[in-house]
């Protein structure tokens, strides 16, 4: 009896973990013109932003999360690796020359954000 309960609970647990972490819907991107505050706390909020091509956009990263995991942000397509001091605004200016989706992450690539560049 106990075995059956544990097995069923386990299967439900595995399905839940799969659904919760791996099936999450991507959030709709926030359209940004000029400047945006990105809160760094357990991830990036907003997670996805869309910005115009050939225009300079200021990404203001504010780290509210004291975890050392998020202390660096890396935008590889823009060749930027920046230290984010706790509770401080760090402004990263980018002027994308190409349209497309550009992912960024924390220093260890555990948390992700996305920049969509549109015409």
């Amino acid at each position: 009896m106990n075995e059956t309960i544990v097995t069923i609970s386990g299967i439900i647990g595995i399905i839940f973990v799969f659904w919760f972490f791996l099936m999450k819907k991507e959030k709709k991107e926030v359209a940004v013109i000029g400047s945006v505050d990105i809160i760094v706390e357990g991830g990036y909020s907003p997670e996805a932003i869309s910005i115009p091509k050939n225009k300079t956009t200021k990404l203001n990263f504010i780290r509210k999360d004291s975890s050392s995991c998020l202390e660096e942000v890396v935008l590889p397509d823009f060749k930027i690796r920046k230290h984010l001091p706790f509770n401080e605004k760090v402004v990263i200016e980018i002027t994308p020359k190409q349209t497309g989706e550009f992912k960024y992450s924390c220093g260890m690539n555990m948390f992700h954000g996305k920049i969509i560049v549109t015409d």
Partner: peptide
């Protein structure tokens, strides 16, 4: 905990 809880809100999991 301080690192894992906000991550869960984003439906993300890490080392913590």
């Amino acid at each position: 905990y301080r690192a894992a809880i906000p991550a869960l809100r984003h439906r993300t999991a890490n080392m913590d």
